[in-house]
Design a protein around this nucleic acid. Structure first.
Lengths: 205, 205
DNA sequence: GTTATGTTACCGAACGGTACGTGTCTTGCT
DNA sequence: AGCAAGACACGTACCGTTCGGTAACATAAC
């Protein structure tokens, strides 16, 4: 059989082969993001990951469990990316807020971008009882809180309104990407956000 | 068997029972919107519609065909709603633009709202070849053109930028509804849009 | 021996889709 | 008027495939 633990097409020579569980997880996360949760079957995941079905079910008790695990990871990665962008922006409140906007603009410019993995699944997962939905709601609630905190550091009269306004623009840029790609209305993301911030700051003066 | 052509639980007395094809169509449109395309099977459609599977396949050559027909109808309804709102707003350019924004704010407030049927499917349908995708892209391209036209009637320096900015906010409000419902950031839709319009108009002066 | 994995074969349910029979109108002929 | 014939709409029953998920066993590394 082709491939062994020390060198294969998926991990390169010298790099130790990852466990079946983590291969399943990485593959599933990628496939779910690129094609959607319902569009990807467990057979495709194990095939793409180069493992077998029992390996998947030894690591995750169901497909739903795997989905929730991927969503949790997506949420954590997204949050870390945003916090890192804020931390790298220094201490100026305005720059910190702009960093979050630029961070999203950068992500949208990536050629393999396909929307926010959390927002995408929110469309596919309307049932309130689903365990994955709590991850989605917590993730977006956290993001909203971050935006409110950043807005409060600015001298504006209504930081919550500014935060929600920016959130709408960012989510809108993410959403329109599905139709128009990165060269559509999403190009106006930064400009529109900065204009909104300016308006709130001028009004406060 | 219960029910006859003149009176049944689904259409009321005195109203003639609709054809199997139109019942399938109406039911599919509703189910696809509420739960997503992939989540709804043909068995559920025909069951909910009170017809049988061959009736579906006599009217539509495949599930994909039914999906495309529903999307086309969704796009037409959406467009007509927007144009009607604009027409009802009179001749003042600013009021015409605001009418589109208010129209979307009204829709989002509806208790059974579940996002834009077109944007939702765009998430579920990433494959470029799909015939349904052309409907989605045409629909959103049309909407963008409407916004540009309305913005051009205003005295602003960059009507395209304003139109795209408003489009982002509107799409963002639609998108956030999936997580936060109508009482979340979407509440800032009108205020954010008006602020954007104000900025562009002040800058032109 | 223990642990992690692959192999094979299978399950019941749901999927999209279809062959074929049946009832009900309308049509045209006598 | 009466009646056969075709068009039409619809239902019963079924097709093969794929779905998520499992049982039992073999193999390999530490």
């Amino acid at each position: 059989m082709a491939g062994n633990k020390e060198s294969c097409v998926d991990c390169g020579p010298g790099e130790s082969r990852k466990s079946a569980a983590s291969r399943v997880f990485d593959t599933a996360k990628d496939l779910f993001y690129r094609r959607g949760i319902r569009a990807v079957g467990v057979d495709e995941i194990v095939c793409e990951a180069g493992v077998t079905k029992p390996s998947l079910y030894r690591a995750f008790k169901s497909k739903d469990d795997l989905v929730t695990a991927c969503l949790t990871q997506n949420a954590a990665e997204g949050r870390e990316g945003i916090l890192a962008a804020i931390a790298a922006a220094g201490d100026d409140p305005r720059k910190r807020l702009s960093a979050v906007i630029d961070h999203h603009a950068d992500k949208i410019r990536c050629p393999d971008y396909r929307g926010c993995p959390i927002s995408n699944v929110a469309v596919e997962m309307p049932e309130p009882g689903n365990p994955g939905r709590e991850v989605l709601e917590q993730c977006k609630t956290d993001f909203r809180a971050i935006m409110v905190d950043l807005s409060r550091d600015l001298d504006v009269a209504y930081p919550e309104a500014l935060a929600d306004g920016l959130l709408l623009v960012i989510e809108g840029a993410i959403a329109t990407h599905h139709i128009f790609g990165s060269q559509g209305p999403a190009l106006s993301l930064v400009e529109t956000c900065e204009s909104l911030i300016d308006s709130h700051m001028e009004r406060a003066r």
